[in-house]
Simulated scan of single mutants.
Amino acid sequence: MNRYTLTRHLWRSSGLVVLWAGMLVLSLLVTGIVSLFKDITISGWSAWVYISPWYMLGMGIYVTAVHLPMYIEHGVTRRRCMPQALLFGLLLVTVGAALITLGFGIERALYAVVDWPQTLGESDDGLFTAADQYGRIFLGFWLGFAIFLAVGAAIGAAFYRKAWGGLGGVLVIVLGLGLISPAGLAGAASFPTSRVVEAVAGQPSIALVVVSCVVAAVAATGLTWGLVRDLPIRSSGN
């Protein structure tokens, strides 16, 4: 296997750019249709982007429950698989956050043509509070995507290996509900547990949000590694 073959294969299978383009076109189309009946006062893209973290969760599951076992079964060592899978994850998260940010920029340019305000609604939660805070938008979604991808990878690995008597996947899902809470605080997701934290402690500082996101992503990644480092290969009959 050539160097980075697995990374390239995973990237091609992700379909990220095509999905982003489809979501952006659909967002603009729906906004245009709505404008025929009422004034546009908020960013349509800001509502659509909250689908994207769940895509990252699904990709994480897909990598550890489908791709890694397939590669290991065909003789690729875990030592070779994991660095390439990690590189793919970093690439997916970075490009994904960049595309979300680009979507806000494209929408802003189009809104300017028709003189529509591009606001984020009444919420001022998260690392960004305006649709043109591109650096903060990128950071917020990068952190959120990293958490969702890592949690998805842990869930996929736990279900695949039937960890802890088959209850591992369920237990990891429960744990994942807590781990993804910081993604909501970063503004990259709309999630109930994040609102619970805000209700109890208020909106935390930017530094605390960043640190909590990093800790959550590292914890989920560590859990994933613990589950895949000796990942068993099941035959199709099992």
Rank of each mutant, 00 (worst) to 15 (best):
I206W: 15
A158I: 04
W142L: 15
F128G: 06
A47P: 00
A183G: 04
W20A: 07
V211R: 00
T94M: 07
A201P: 02
K162M: 05
A97R: 07
L167R: 11
T64P: 00
H9G: 12
G15S: 10
G144T: 01
A216Y: 11
W164P: 04
A21H: 00
G168S: 04
F88T: 04
L120M: 11
S190C: 03
V197C: 01
A189K: 01
P69F: 10
V170G: 15
K38P: 00
P83Y: 06
M59A: 08
V210P: 10
K38Y: 07
L110D: 05
V49E: 12
G166R: 09
A158K: 02
L175Q: 07
G60N: 01
L57K: 01
G184T: 11
R108Y: 08
F88Q: 00
L102G: 06
L143T: 05
I173L: 15
N238V: 14
R108H: 10
G126N: 12
H9P: 00
R79N: 08
S235P: 00
A158L: 04
R195P: 00
T129A: 06
A163E: 02
A201H: 05
V218F: 14
V200C: 02
A207G: 09
V215Y: 09
A98S: 12
R229P: 05
V210I: 15
V200F: 08
